[in-house]
Design a protein around this nucleic acid. Structure first.
Length: 887
RNA sequence: GCCGGGAUGGCGGAAUUGGUAUACGCGAUGGACUUAAAAUCCAUUGAAUUUAUACUUCAUGAGGGUUCGAGUCCCUCUCCCGGCACCA
C-alpha cells in the first residue's frame, strides 16, 4: 500500500515529466488548439508569492483538463524581467542587473517547478534578452513610423501620410513628427522623486507613485509618448467582442472615460481702452456635455495653463494679479490642487469678455485651477444653475446664476432626493432636496426646491424642460441637446464632439534597466529610427546604474555609446538615452511564445494564425488599466499593419482574487505576515498546497490564508491513497455508485470549465466519502476517480496510476465523459410542504406521477395532522421535487 | 460624490438560477485505539424550547413587497471591499 508521502514522489515525477516532455505544445497539430496564459511573472528577489501559485495552478488545471479533452494545449511561461526593483537591488549590491535577473530567474524556476505546473518550458522567454527586446524595439519603431488615418480608422505607414504641399523641409518634418504614433514632446509629467522616474498616468494612484507611494511631482520634461488615445474608441467598442469579467470591462470603460457633447466657440472681445489693435479676432473653444444649457452660461473659466492668457496679455487690465494666480497654480502639485477641491479659487480677467454665441451676451472670463488643462480644451463654459462646481464658484464670487432647465413636470419624483427631517432618504438619484414633513408635503417640498432653482438658490443637475432659452424653450434636455448642436454646426459656432479621459501613454523612463529607445537624434535630420538590421540596440555596460535627479538616464553618461553617426546623413549625432517603461516588453509577449526562437520575425505568420487568439488569459485586477489596456492597444496597432490576424489578443480574461494573510490584511514583508510557498510545499507537499489554494474559496474572490485548513487537503489525499486496499481488479463495478460517479464527472467537468475549482474539489470529496463506504471498489471506478483528480493533484495521482499497473502517464489519458442517463437517480426524496414549509418527506420512485405523489402526500400521518379541519385551497406538484399543499 | 461587487453557522464557504438553506472543508465536543501524546477512526455540531437525536418555533445585514413557495426577483436602508474622482 502507498502511504501518502509527497516529499518522496513529487520530485521524481517532476523530473520524469521534464524528461518525457509531455506538456509540450505542438505547432500545427491536427488537434484543436487551446492557448491559455497567465501573466508572466516579474522575477523579483523576494521569490514567489502564494498568489502566483493561485493563478498558475488554476490555469494549469484548465490546461491539463483540456489536454485530456484532446486539445493541443499551449501553456507557456516566461519572465517580465526589466524593472526598478532589480535595478535598485543591483545598485545596492553593485551587481549587474543582468546577473541579478539571472539569479532571480533561477530561483523562480526552481520554485515554479516545485508545484508541478504543466508549462511548456521550451518556449520560455525573457524580456531582457536582446533577442527578445529586439522585437520590442522593432514594434516601437513601427509605431514611430506610423500615423493614425482617421478616414480608414486605422494606423498606416507614415509614408502614406498626406503632407500639405506648401511646407518647407523643416515644417514638413514637424508635420510628420506631429502625426507619428510614437512622438516626442515636452510636457509636464508626473515625476516620482523617490524612484527618480517619470510615470504614466496609469501609474499614478491618488497622486502618488504606484510603486513606492511617494507623492508625485510635476516636472516638465522631454518625453516619448504613444498615441493610445487614437485607439480610445476601438478599445471601448471591441470590448463587446470579448469575454472579460464584467468588472474588468467596466473598469476599462471608466478609465477611458468617454463622454459625448459638443464644442462651442466663444468669441473674445477686448476692451478698447488700451487702444492697441489685435491682429486676429480671438476665440475660445470649450467642450461641454450639456450644450442644452448654453443659454444659462453666465461666465467662462480658463485653466491657468490656457494659452489665451498669454496671447492676450496686453489686454488684461489686472495682468499682475492674473499672472500671480497662474504662477501659484503652477507651483501647486496635483495633490494640492485636488486637495483644495473644497474651496475654489480664481481671478477674473479684467478687460476681456467672451460672447455667448446664442444670445450675444458679454460674459466675464475667469481663470481658475478647478479647470484642468489636460481635459477637453482646457476651458469651460460655466452654467452655475446646473453644475455643482460652477454653482459653488459662482456663489463664492457673486456671479450670475441663471436657471434654464426647469425640472418641473418632468418624469418623476426620482429626479430628486427628498430628505426628511430625520435625514432619511426617500428617493434616490438626482438632486438633493431637504424637506420638513412637519409643515409641508413632499409635493410642497419639491415645489419649494424648484423655486429655489429658479431663483438661483440651488443647482439642478438632472434633466428637465428648457426655459429662458429662446428657441429651446419647452424642449426636454435630450431634445435640446440635439437642436442646439445642429444650430451650432449650422452657424459655425461648434460641433458635436466626444472626449476621453484617457491620455497618451508616457513612454520614456530615465533608468538603466529597460529597453533602449532605438532612435538617433541628429541636428539636421531630427529623430532618426535605427534600421531593422541594427536591432537589437543593446544596453551598453555602464559603471553606475544610479538614476539621476536631473531626469537624465544613466545611459547619457556613456559618451562612447551616445555619440554616433546619423544613420541618415552620416554626420555626428547622439543616441536617445531614455529607456522604455516596464510595460513595453509585456505588451506583446503572448505573441513571442508562438515562435520564441524566430530571428527573422517576432513570430511567423503561420504560427500566429495557428495559435491566436489567446483562449483564456488570467491575471490580476491591478493590471486592468495598465498591462491589459496597453497590450490591447499594441495588438490593435499590429492588427492595423497586418502583422496579426485578430483585432483582440485575448478572447477570455479572468482574474484571481488576492490571497490575504491569515490576519485578513494584505501580505507584506513589512507586516511580517507573508507565507513562503517553499515552506508550505516542503511541509505539506505540492498536491496538498495545490488543492488548498483551489479549495479555499471562489477563485475570483480575495480570501485570507488559513494554514489550519491545509491539513484537510492532506487528509483527503491520504484517504485517496488508503483506498487502494479496497481496489480489486476483478471486481465488477457496483451499480449503486454509478449515478454519483457520473454526477461527479459532470460537476468536475463543468466546474473546471467555469473556473469554479472549490466546488469541483468538494464534489470529489463527496465521491470519495461514498467510495469509502463500499466494501470493495472496482479498478475502473478508482481509475476514473484518479483521472478526475489528476489535474488538481498531478503527482500523487500519477504515482497511484502507475501502481495500478499503467505504463502511460495519467496525464495523457482522456478525461472521463458523463452519461446523463446514468446520473438520474431511480429514487428521490419527495418533499411535502404545507404552505411552503417542509412537513414531511418520502422516498419515492423518481418518475412518480402527480396523482400518486399527491395521494401519498395526503396519506402521510404527519400531513394529516396539519390539514385536519382546514380548507385546502390548492395543491402544487413539482416534478421530481415536491408537493405543496396550500391551506 | 460616481461606477462595480458583496453581506449565509465559531471560521472558509455551498445551494441545480424561484423549490429540502447551511453541501464540502476547518474548528469544537464526546468516544475508540495508545502507558501517554500525535496521527487515525467513529459520533455530534445554526439558534431557541425540550429528558429527548421527537415535536415546534426562529434564523441567509435591516425593513417592506411579489409568490403556493424567496438566500435567490422588486423597492428602501445600513455596513464592508474594489475602482474612479474638480473629466465640464
Amino acid at each position: 500500500m502507498q502511504k501518502y508521502n509527497p516529499q518522496k514522489i513529487e520530485g521524481k515525477w517532476q523530473k520524469e515529466w521534464d524528461k518525457s516532455n509531455i506538456y509540450k505544445a505542438e505547432d500545427f497539430s491536427k488537434k484543436k488548439k487551446f492557448y491559455c496564459l497567465i501573466e508572466f511573472p516579474y522575477p523579483s528577489g523576494a521569490g514567489l508569492h502564494v498568489g502566483h501559485l493561485r493563478s498558475h495552478i488554476a490555469i494549469d488545471i484548465v490546461a491539463r483538463k483540456k489536454r485530456m479533452d484532446g486539445y493541443n494545449v499551449m501553456y507557456p511561461i516566461g519572465w517580465d524581467a526589466f524593472g526598478l526593483p532589480t535595478e535598485n537591488f543591483a545598485i545596492k549590491t553593485k551587481t549587474h542587473p543582468k546577473i541579478v535577473t539571472k539569479n532571480n530567474i533561477k530561483n523562480f524556476t526552481r520554485q515554479i517547478k516545485s508545484y508541478g505546473p504543466s508549462f511548456d518550458w521550451s518556449r520560455e522567454i525573457n524580456t531582457t534578452d536582446p533577442k527578445y527586446y529586439k522585437w520590442t524595439q522593432w514594434i516601437f519603431l513601427k509605431l514611430f513610423n506610423s500615423f493614425y488615418d482617421e478616414k480608414s480608422d486605422k494606423a498606416r505607414d507614415i509614408k502614406d501620410l498626406d503632407i500639405p504641399k506648401n511646407l518647407n523641409d523643416l515644417e514638413k518634418r514637424e508635420f510628420i513628427d506631429n502625426h507619428r504614433l510614437a512622438y516626442e514632446t515636452k510636457m509636464a509629467i508626473n515625476w516620482c522623486p523617490s524612484c527618480k522616474i517619470g510615470l504614466a498616468n496609469e501609474e499614478v494612484v491618488n497622486n502618488t507613485c504606484e510603486r513606492c507611494g511617494a507623492p508625485a511631482e510635476k516636472k516638465t520634461m522631454r518625453q516619448w509618448m504613444l498615441r493610445i488615445t487614437k485607439y480610445a474608441e476601438r478599445l471601448i467598442k471591441d470590448l463587446d467582442t470579448v469575454d472579460y469579467l464584467d468588472k474588468i470591462k467596466t473598469q476599462q470603460v471608466n478609465w477611458i472615460g468617454r463622454s459625448e457633447g459638443a464644442t462651442v466657440k466663444f468669441a473674445v472681445k477686448t476692451s478698447t481702452e488700451l487702444g492697441s489693435e489685435i491682429s486676429e479676432p480671438s476665440s475660445v473653444e470649450v467642450f461641454t456635455t450639456r450644450p442644452d444649457t448654453l443659454f444659462g452660461c453666465t461666465y467662462m473659466v480658463l485653466s491657468p495653463e490656457h494659452n489665451l492668457i498669454k496671447s492676450l496679455e496686453s489686454r488684461i487690465l489686472n495682468l499682475d494679479e492674473v499672472q500671480k494666480y497662474v504662477e501659484q497654480a503652477k507651483n501647486k502639485s496635483d495633490l494640492d490642487r485636488t486637495d483644495l477641491a473644497k474651496e475654489k479659487t480664481g481671478v477674473e480677467l479684467k478687460g476681456i469678455k467672451a460672447i455667448n454665441p446664442v444670445n450675444n451676451e458679454e460674459i466675464p472670463i475667469w481663470v481658475a485651477d478647478y479647470v484642468l488643462a489636460s481635459y477637453g480644451t482646457g476651458a469651460i463654459m460655466s452654467v452655475p444653475a446646473h453644475d455643482e462646481r460652477d454653482f459653488e464658484f459662482a456663489k463664492k464670487f457673486g456671479l450670475e446664476i441663471k436657471c434654464v432647465v426647469d425640472p418641473i413636470k418632468f418624469e418623476n419624483v426620482r429626479n430628486y432626493i427628498i430628505i426628511d427631517k430625520d435625514g432619511i432618504q426617500q428617493c434616490r438619484g438626482g438632486t438633493v432636496v431637504s424637506w420638513n414633513p412637519q409643515n409641508e408635503t413632499i409635493e410642497n417640498g419639491i415645489e419649494r426646491f424648484l423655486e429655489e432653482v429658479r431663483n438661483g438658490k440651488h443647482y439642478h443637475i438632472g434633466k428637465g424642460k428648457l426655459i429662458n432659452s429662446d428657441f429651446l424653450n419647452g424642449l426636454t434636455t435630450e431634445e435640446a441637446k440635439k437642436k442646439i448642436t445642429k444650430w451650432l454646426e449650422k452657424n459655425n459656432f461648434g460641433k458635436k464632439a466626444t472626449n476621453y479621459k484617457l491620455r497618451d501613454w508616457v513612454f520614456s523612463r530615465q533608468h538603466y534597466w529597460g529597453e533602449p529607445i532605438p532612435i538617433v537624434k541628429c541636428e539636421k535630420c531630427g529623430n532618426v529610427a535605427l534600421e531593422k538590421k541594427d536591432l537589437p540596440l543593446e544596453l551598453p555596460e555602464v559603471k553606475n546604474y544610479e538614476p539621476t535627479d536631473t531626469g537624465k538616464s544613466p545611459l547619457a553618461k556613456i559618451d562612447k555609446w551616445v555619440n554616433v553617426k546619423c544613420p541618415k546623413c552620416g554626420k555626428s549625432a547622439k543616441r536617445e538615452t531614455d529607456t522604455m517603461p516596464n510595460w513595453a516588453g509585456s505588451s506583446w509577449y503572448y505573441l513571442r511564445y508562438l515562435d520564441s526562437k524566430n530571428n527573422q520575425e517576432f513570430a511567423s505568420q503561420k504560427n500566429i494564425k495557428h495559435w491566436m487568439p489567446v483562449d483564456l488569459y488570467n491575471g490580476g485586477m491591478e493590471h486592468t488599466t495598465l498591462h491589459l489596456l496597453y497590450s490591447r492597444f499594441w495588438h490593435k496597432f499590429l492588427y492595423d499593419l497586418g502583422f496579426v490576424n485578430t483585432a483582440e489578443p485575448y478572447k477570455k480574461r479572468r482574474s484571481h482574487g488576492m490571497i490575504l494573510a491569515e490576519d485578513g490584511q494584505k501580505m507584506s514583508k513589512s507586516r511580517g505576515n507573508t507565507i513562503n510557498p517553499d515552506e508550505v510545499i516542503r511541509q505539506y507537499g505540492a498536491d496538498t498546497v495545490r488543492l488548498y489554494e483551489m479549495f479555499m474559496g471562489p477563485y475570483s474572490e480575495a480570501i485570507p490564508w488559513n494554514t489550519n485548513s491545509l491539513v484537510g487537503m492532506s487528509r483527503f489525499l491520504e484517504r485517496v491513497c488508503k483506498l487502494q486496499i479496497k481496489v480489486e481488479t476483478r471486481f465488477i463495478a457496483s451499480k449503486s455508485i454509478e449515478p454519483l460517479l457520473h454526477k461527479t464527472i459532470k460537476k468536475v467537468t463543468e466546474d473546471i470549465d467555469n473556473l469554479k475549482f472549490n466546488t469541483a474539489i468538494s464534489q470529489l470529496m463527496i465521491f470519495l466519502n461514498s467510495l469509502e463506504k463500499e466494501e470493495k471498489i472496482s479498478a475502473t471506478h478508482y481509475s476514473q476517480f484518479l483521472i478526475l483528480l489528476s489535474p488538481f493533484a498531478p503527482h500523487i495521482t500519477e504515482e497511484l496510476w502507475e501502481m495500478l499497473g499503467n505504463q502511460e502517464s495519467i496525464h495523457l489519458q482522456s478525461f472521463p465523459k458523463y452519461n446523463l442517463e446514468l446520473i438520474k437517480e431511480k429514487e428521490i426524496t419527495l418533499v411535502i410542504q404545507i404552505n411552503g414549509k417542509l412537513r414531511d418527506q418520502k422516498k419515492v420512485p423518481a418518475d412518480i406521477s402527480e396523482e400518486n405523489a399527491k395521494k401519498l402526500a395526503f396519506e402521510s400521518v404527519k400531513i394529516k395532522k396539519w390539514i385536519e379541519n382546514k380548507e385546502i385551497r390548492k395543491v402544487i406538484f413539482v416534478k421530481e421535487r415536491l408537493v405543496n399543499i396550500v391551506i
